[in-house]
Every structure is written in structure tokens, then in C-alpha cells.
């Protein structure tokens, strides 16, 4: 699945990073708790979150996450967009809620990795 596929499935729109639309996403993580995200290591992952502050971008940067989807129509501010631009992280915003957004991507074959040990 590519970032563009995620946009299409979620009816989302690019806030930043349309240039990255063809990058492949291999796994997903949905959480508002950044420490839970930091416990998850997968290459080329997408993060779905309802949290909207600069630490979301920082967390994604540390994890090498390539795309962040803000659910429930959340919109990052200019500072966050600039941080994402510096690190080359695509930003999407969708009106769907967390549960629905995760379910829609799961239905299309995206997975979250193995259970936490």
C-alpha cells in the first residue's frame, strides 16, 4: 500500500508531502499515546493519531515513520508542518475517527505487526 492509497481509502487530504505519495507503507500503528508508539518498531510505517502537537512529529521522526494520519479532522499547525517538511514525513488529515480509519486500512490489507511481548 502506498501513501496515496491511504489517502484514497480514508478520503484524506495531504497537508504536507504529496511528493511522497508513491512511498510504500508496510505497517501501521494507531495511538494517542506517544510512548506506546515508541514501543513499536516497524520499517516504513504509518502512524494514525488523534493527538496534535509537535511531539507527534518528533516521535514519528525517532521511529522513522514515513506518514502521519491525523484523525477526526485534526489539523497540525505551521510549526508542526515545518518540522515534518524538514524530516520528510508526509502528513494527511481525515475526518474519520480512529477506530474507523484503522479498520478501513486493515480491511485493505494493512497490518500492525506482531503482538507486544
Amino acid at each position: 500500500m502506498t501513501i496515496k492509497d491511504i489517502r484514497d481509502i480514508l478520503g484524506a487530504r495531504f497537508i504536507y508531502g504529496e511528493d511522497h505519495k508513491d512511498r510504500e507503507v508496510h505497517a501501521a500503528c494507531g495511538s494517542d499515546m506517544m510512548s506506546d508508539v515508541l514501543a513499536f518498531v516497524k520499517d516504513s510505517a504509518v502512524l494514525l493519531t488523534g493527538l496534535c502537537n509537535p511531539q507527534v512529529i518528533r516521535t514519528a521522526e525517532m521511529m522513522d515513520i514515513i506518514c502521519i494520519v491525523f484523525v477526526r479532522g485534526k489539523m497540525p499547525d505551521d510549526n508542526m508542518i515545518e518540522m515534518a517538511r524538514e524530516k520528510g514525513i508526509a502528513l494527511l488529515s481525515t475526518g474519520h475517527r480512529m477506530f474507523s480509519a484503522c479498520g478501513m486500512l486493515y480491511e485493505k490489507g494493512l497490518r500492525g505487526g506482531s503482538p507486544y511481548r
Binding site: 499515546m33 506517544m34 514501543a39 502537537n53 511531539q55
Partner: peptide, 14 residues
């Protein structure tokens, strides 16, 4: 802090 996305008690374990 929890509303900012931290304070889940995962910092030191991570």
C-alpha cells in the same frame, strides 16, 4: 502530560 501523549508509564521500560 497524558493529554500531551506521554505519561503512560512506558518511558523507562522503553
Amino acid at each position: 502530560i497524558r493529554s500531551l501523549g506521554f505519561g503512560a508509564g512506558m518511558g523507562l521500560p522503553n
